[in-house]
């Protein structure tokens, strides 16, 4: 609770603070709390260990041949990111506001001269920074190991993966915070977040596959529908960025390249950033209107 007091102490200041400084102040508190928390340490460790395992196993399978591009290592890393990063971001976001509310912390915060939007943005930025730390530590360790082991990934690949993972994490964090703003109890929020994670990772893809088979979806419909899932967007974007080529994804990928070509980057960017903006807007509306208690 010492952190709460530190914000309260800010009354002592006589300078008229701006919205940005309020937000940053809360962001710092959030980052500090996140780095202290068990989930951060756990997830970062898991990410590093799994990433290294994937890199080792994949490099062993190929035996260091001169072929670059979308290799087995990259595929393994993409798969790992698709599993871990959304889980990390969703649960981090879901825990934050709901647990504050549960402890009475949110009421206390909002009783200070800060607006709900500032609280929200502050939490978002702080948690986002902690996720950035986790992702860059995890992938950075993988890259160092890969270079030492003579892996075939190029530096651009790792940098693209890190950047896109961060965007994906921001989107999932936004969804997590929205869940958090809508639920009363932290445990419920985390439960919902895990359900959403399961849906995005497995259920929606499986449903879309079943739909494609049962309803004979055309490939343009299939591609459009897959854009609704941020994880699919992340996957297609990283393939596109690393290989400049989606034809490995079969007819739908070929269709996407031929139909949209250069604007694919923009399409994927819009597809992912919508997941950052929209849930945050919902969360701020909810926080502003609903009684936080």
């Amino acid at each position: 609770m010492s952190t709460a007091i530190s914000v309260g102490d800010a009354f002592a200041s006589r300078r008229p603070p701006s919205m940005a400084s309020n937000t940053l102040c809360i962001a710092r508190r959030e980052l500090r709390d996140a780095l202290k928390s068990r989930w951060f340490v756990l997830y970062t460790l898991a990410f590093v260990v799994l990433g290294l395992a994937v890199s080792f196993v994949s490099a062993a399978g190929t035996g260091g041949t001169g072929f670059s591009g979308f290799g087995r290592t990259t595929a393994g890393l993409v798969n790992l990111i698709l599993l871990v990063v959304p889980l990390m971001a969703l649960t981090a976001g879901a825990a934050t506001i709901a647990s504050d509310r549960e402890r009475g912390m949110l009421a206390y915060l909002l009783s200070q001269p800060v607006s709900p939007v500032e609280v929200l943005l502050g939490k978002y930025i702080g948690l986002g920074a902690s996720l950035l730390a986790a992702i860059s530590l995890g992938l950075g360790a993988c890259a160092v190991i890969l270079s030492w082991r003579g892996g075939v990934s190029s530096p651009q690949t790792i940098l693209w993966l890190a950047g896109l993972s961060f965007v994906l994490a921001l989107g999932m964090l936004s969804v997590g915070i929205m869940i958090s703003s809508l639920t009363r109890r932290a445990s419920a929020a985390v439960g919902v977040a895990i359900f959403v994670w399961l849906t995005l990772v497995f259920v929606s893809d499986l449903a879309l596959m079943a739909g494609a088979v049962a309803l004979h979806l055309r490939i343009d419909e299939l591609f459009a529908l897959s854009l609704l899932n941020p994880l699919q967007v992340f996957k297609m974007w990283s393939l596109h960025a690393i290989d400049a080529n989606l034809d490995v994804l079969g007819p739908a990928g070929l269709y996407a390249v031929e139909e949209y070509g250069r604007s694919l980057h923009a399409i994927f960017a819009v597809g992912l950033s919508a997941w950052i903006v929209l849930p945050l807007v919902v969360a701020s509306v909810v926080l502003a209107r609903k009684s936080p208690l």
């Binding site: 950075g140 993988c142 890259a143 160092v144 892996g151």
Partner: peptide, 18 residues
């Protein structure tokens, strides 16, 4: 191997600075 080492190193540095 050096470019990817640089990339990995800068990622690590980013994480550590966070």
């Amino acid at each position: 191997h050096s470019p990817i080492l640089v990339a990995g190193g800068s990622l690590l540095a980013l994480g550590v600075s966070m």
